[in-house]
Design a protein around this nucleic acid. Structure first.
Lengths: 204, 204
DNA sequence: TGACAATGTTACCAACCCGTAACATTTACT
DNA sequence: AGTAAATGTTACGGGTTGGTAACATTGTCA
């Protein structure tokens, strides 16, 4: 048995997990490296040996969250091969789970929100990840035959970001709990008005 | 001229203004009282003489934002007396301005987001204000004859919170810039399906 | 067993931050 | 003018935080 890593993950992983959890709960600026190291059942020294600084740890956490989101898209495509409309419907459902489940990748949002007007190294990482999400979702909407795919993408973006935000502050009793029903209504509304221009007309 | 307060507002007001601005830019936990006092062209002592603590200052800032929102609702009703549909349409337009304008009352959102999992005294204040907004918006949707007013309220809530959030991180190039067009589409979609049940059916 | 890397422990530093004390200064009002 | 309140200035204390140094411990592999 040369690999006892099955039961106890190596400290690096424990630290990342603890950091993601605590960042989500208290915010990036709301938790200290000492608390993270303790929650990870490790210590501050090993934390600083793996990640040179708190900022670097934040970046690693965000990249980890982005990697998980990568799996999200892969699963989505695998579940409904060559059926973009079904993929879009399922996107709404799965996104709803990501909102309500505790272990969602809110780090992106937290980071984006808390690091405004600051030159935190995680900022452009978040930017890139967001762009990637938007690009994939836009492709999905386009393939699904939506009339104004870009506008639907923006609508879903606002809805899901608002839902994540709202869930954190009001919990299951707030508007975020009905994200799926709302998003489905919005999607069908955009599907319906395929040839006709929108209410306010702006073509694109 | 016993009132020279015309040119330079009293320090209390300057401090509140500066605090709101800096809280918005750097977050509640991201800025210190020293910086606030300096930005207000005052000093830490007078800050603490007016507001006993930083937490109290946060509460005052939030209440100030809520008071401004009060004027928002009053203007809305005054602009379209006895015409709830026009009020709802105008709500979307004005809410869009509140999103994009720099001096919006994001404090509520910021506070709500950053004080999760914390017993900050401002939390329940934010809760109350949110409830009030939701109640007013629900009444508006109901009076406007929407089929599922509660669901539309939640949809608009997610959209506007998402828009505020998105605006702060991506600015005018992000999805938040198209909030008005999106919200208008959603409202008309909800208006259209007055007798028929929604896609996912849940009546209420 | 011996050597080496990874991890843990303790202590420490400099910087920052909230809040207070004591004193100086300006402003407002009679 | 004169008094009192409001404001400004300086300094300080206790606490926390990010980050480092030095040393002890554990585990791994030959």
């Amino acid at each position: 048995m040369t690999a006892p890593a099955r039961l106890a993950p190596p400290p690096r992983e424990r630290i990342i997990d603890a950091a993601r959890d605590l960042f989500r709960k208290h915010g990036i600026k709301g938790i200290g490296v000492d608390a993270i190291a303790e929650a990870a059942e490790s210590n501050k020294m090993t934390l600083y040996r793996h990640f040179g600084s708190k900022d670097d740890l934040v970046v690693v956490c965000i990249e980890r969250a982005a990697a998980e989101a990568e799996g999200f898209w892969a699963d989505l495509k695998a579940a409904h091969p060559d059926d973009p409309r079904a993929q879009l419907q399922d996107w709404v459902r799965r996104a709803g789970e990501f909102v309500t489940v505790a272990h969602c990748n809110c780090e992106l949002l937290d980071a984006a929100a808390q690091l405004v007007e600051s030159d935190h190294p995680a900022r452009h990482v978040v930017e890139e990840i967001r762009k990637g999400h938007k690009r994939r979702l836009a492709a999905l909407c386009r393939d699904a035959g939506v009339a104004e795919p870009d506008l639907l993408v923006d609508a879903l973006t606002l809805l899901i970001e608002g839902a994540r935000f709202n869930w954190r502050s009001t919990g299951p009793t707030g508007a975020a709990a009905r994200f799926v029903a709302i998003a489905e209504t919005v999607v069908t509304a955009f599907m319906a008005k395929s040839p006709c221009g929108g209410s306010s007309g702006r073509a694109h």
